[in-house]
Design a protein around this nucleic acid. Structure first.
Lengths: 116, 116
DNA sequence: TTGACGTATGCCGATATCGGAATACGATGG
DNA sequence: CCATCGTATTCCGATATCGGCATACGTCAA
C-alpha cells in the first residue's frame, strides 16, 4: 500500500481554509468580486500566487469565477463554509462550560483588573 | 530569505483541524476524557499515531492532558474552536443570500420537480 | 530492581505544500 | 496578424506532513 501524506487540499474545505492567505482572499471577496490582479495587489501577493490560491478555493467550491472581457472575476460562494461553521458549532456548549483551570484564570484576571 | 512552506501546524488551530483524524479525536472527546490507547482503539489508529495527533492538538490548546496513574487522560478544551466558528460565522449572510445563478438554478429545480 | 504496561519520540519514505521565477495560454484591440 | 494585457501553469527548492515501525521514556506493581 502506498503511504498517504494528507487529505488532498482540493476537495477538502477544512484544508482549503487552513492557509491564512486563502482566508484573506475569502474575507476580501465579501466586499464583492475582484479580478486576480486586484486581489494580488490588495493582499500583497504575486499574481501567480493569487492564481494558485484561487484555484484551490475554486476546486473546493468556495469561489466562482466568471469571465469579464480580458479579466476573470472571482466571487465568493460561502456555502461551503457552512459545514465548518456547523462542525465547530457542535462544540459550542463546551466552550461555555468552563473548566476548573479556566475559571481560576478568569477569577485572577478580574482580581488583577480591580486591583489596578 | 528562506522559503516558507506553510504556517506551522502547531500554533494554528485552522491547520490543526484540517486533518480528519484530529477532528475525529475532538468529536470523540466530547463524550469525555480518554486515554491514548482508548482513543487509538476507538478510532482505529495506532497508538503512536494517536499520540502524535494529540500532541498537535495539545500544542494548539484544543486538548488538555492529565496524568491518571499509568495512563494519561486527554480531555477537550474547545475554546480554541470558537475563533473558527466566529470566522466562518462572518460569512453567514453570504450563504443565505443567494447568487443570481443559484437562484435560477433553484427555480429550475423546483420547476422540474413540479413537472414530474 | 525488574518486568509489564502505557505513552512519547525518533527515524524513515512518500508525498504535499508553498513561494518564486519563468513562461505558456487567452482575449482584446490596433 | 501582432502586441499587449490578464491569467494560468510549470518547474524548482525548501520544508512540512503523515503513517509505520522501532524504541525510548515513565509509572506502577511485585
Amino acid at each position: 500500500m502506498e503511504p498517504m501524506a494528507r487529505a488532498a487540499t482540493t476537495s477538502d474545505v477544512f484544508n482549503a481554509i487552513a492557509e491564512p492567505q486563502r482566508r484573506e482572499i475569502l474575507a476580501l471577496l465579501r466586499a464583492g468580486e475582484r479580478s486576480v490582479t486586484e486581489l494580488a495587489q490588495e493582499l500583497g501577493m504575486t499574481q501567480p500566487g493569487a492564481s494558485k490560491h484561487l484555484r484551490v478555493l475554486r476546486e473546493v467550491g468556495l469561489v466562482r469565477d466568471r469571465k469579464a472581457g480580458k479579466q476573470r472575476l472571482y466571487g465568493l460562494d460561502a456555502s461551503g463554509l457552512r459545514p465548518v461553521h456547523e462542525w465547530t458549532g457542535g462544540f459550542e456548549r463546551f466552550w461555555n462550560e468552563s473548566f476548573d483551570r479556566l475559571d481560576a484564570y478568569v477569577q485572577d484576571l478580574n482580581q488583577t483588573r480591580k486591583a489596578e
